[in-house]
Amino acid sequence: MDPAPAALTAYRAPSQRVLDKEIHALDAYCRDFIGLSPFATLATATADGWPDVSPRGGDPGFVHVLDERRLALPDRLGNNRIDSLHNLDANPRAALMFFVPGFDETLRVYGTTSVVDPGELDVDLTEFGKPPLSVLVLSVVRAYFQCPKSVMRSGLWDPERRVDRSAYPSFGTVLREHCRDTTIPTDDAVMRAALTEEL
């Protein structure tokens, strides 16, 4: 094995507690945390290793715990790039990071995946009045809670640190510039109304 880069020598060895917190199934604490979570990030990678991270959200518990070793993530209508699904077709490894508003700790779950038709699972996955287009089933390999430090540093849930929307151009304005498409509306209210119809 090649020696570690010099920059890594600045870090102390992880404590035994940090090593011991990694488990290989979803205990009651993991399952309850997932049941409270309305937002997660899905990490995948292409066959040749290029990473991708995709935000996923819904009502709390939108990711369903099928049992202590399996999660079901419904895939809702999005931008139809389906980058994550293409990646998983070539490389089935994935990771989910769960957030709960107001909680500083996060939960990381790693595993291998399969993409199935919603009808294959005996679970009602309807949300916002619509069934999912497909379902990602993650077979858990490992899981652990991430310490709160990064969220504490960011002040993510602190109302005093919330950024006023006027501090940045509207999403429509950014898209108009990125896509070089003058037909995109720049009014956020118009954009959000259109997006709401597709939830």
Rank of each mutant, 00 (worst) to 15 (best):
C30S: 09
A28V: 00
G155Y: 07
T112Q: 08
L195W: 14
K149P: 10
A28C: 00
A95S: 07
V63G: 06
A94Q: 02
N80I: 05
L125T: 03
R165L: 13
D164M: 10
A90M: 10
H86G: 09
T9C: 02
A143V: 05
R142S: 15
R165Y: 15
F62W: 05
E127N: 03
T113C: 05
R192M: 13
H24P: 06
A40C: 14
N80P: 04
H178L: 14
A193F: 04
L96T: 04
R180C: 08
I23W: 01
A45S: 06
H64R: 14
V115G: 02
G102C: 01
T106Y: 04
R161M: 11
Q16I: 13
R81T: 10
M152A: 14
S150W: 06
L77Y: 02
S15E: 09
L77S: 04
A194G: 13
L96K: 09
M1A: 11
D89Y: 06
Q146T: 07
P148M: 02
L175C: 13
R176C: 01
L195T: 10
G172C: 07
P5N: 00
T182A: 14
H24F: 09
A90L: 10
H86Y: 05
D188A: 01
G111C: 03
D164C: 03
D89N: 06
T196L: 10
A95H: 02
N80S: 15
E120N: 12
D59E: 15
R69D: 14
T182C: 09
P101C: 04
T41K: 08
F99M: 15
G35I: 01
G57F: 00
L88N: 03
V109E: 02
F171S: 08
D2H: 12
G111K: 01
M1K: 13
V163A: 10
C30L: 06
S134F: 08
E105S: 07
N80E: 14
K149W: 15
F103E: 15
L71I: 00
L66C: 04
R165I: 15
D59A: 13
S15R: 11
P132A: 00
S37Q: 05
R180I: 07
D181K: 06
S134E: 15
Q16V: 11
V53P: 01
R153A: 10
R176G: 04
P38C: 05
T106E: 08
I82K: 11
A43G: 01
H86P: 03
R56S: 06
